[in-house]
Simulated assay, not measured.
Amino acid sequence: MVNNRIKQLRLSKNLSQEQLAEKSKVSVRTIQRLEAGNEASIETLNLVAGALGVPVKELFDDSTAQENKIQNAEEKLHYQLQSRHDEFKTVQHLYSAGYIIVMLLWGVCFNFVHNDIWSAVMGVFWIGGWMLMGPLKKLIILKCVDPKLDAKYPLTASRIDKDREDK
């Protein structure tokens, strides 16, 4: 049996066991077992710590007894976060490069339009495209990129800093 602070941390954040289970993407039974002091895998500890917004070492009263497990958990989490950040940054760069190319090609089309009305319409769409760049990028990240990265790097799924680079 392991003394831990999971129940105390959960209550301090005003979360029920069900809410913590949903937020950390584990079962309610797993939360109950953890609060009862049962052993847990490194992955489970990382998920619960991420959902509570604390490092894994803060889950335990006496972290020296669990030092090896905590160190392994933090190493796995750091590796997944770094890998996720690298992939996320690559997706952002690809999106930006693709968008700039499309907008430059659209701008080149102005040379081939000799009608003032069509030229004005194309200009409005060109400006509108630049204005839509930010919201479109957020939508793509929210609906496409994040779910795939959450599945690929499960320890990062419940973290609020999952898409931000470490400082």
Rank of each mutant, 00 (worst) to 15 (best):
L59H: 01
W126M: 08
V145T: 09
L81K: 02
T64Y: 10
V121Y: 10
Y79C: 03
H114F: 14
L132K: 09
N46K: 00
E74W: 05
I101W: 07
D86Y: 12
E43S: 13
D86R: 13
A120M: 13
I117K: 06
A97G: 05
S83L: 11
I101M: 07
D61E: 15
L136H: 12
K137F: 14
G98C: 10
G37T: 06
M133Y: 10
I100C: 04
A40K: 01
V48Y: 01
L45R: 04
C109G: 11
L132W: 08
F125K: 12
E74L: 10
I117H: 06
E39M: 12
F110S: 11
V102P: 00
A151E: 15
V102R: 08
Y79D: 13
L94Q: 15
E67I: 11
F110K: 11
Y79H: 14
D116A: 14
T156A: 09
L77T: 04
I100F: 14
T156M: 12
V121D: 03
F110Q: 12
Y153W: 10
G37F: 05
K143T: 07
L59I: 02
L47T: 03
G123I: 01
S63H: 09
N111L: 15
V108R: 06
L149R: 04
I42L: 11
W106D: 03
F88P: 00
Y153A: 05
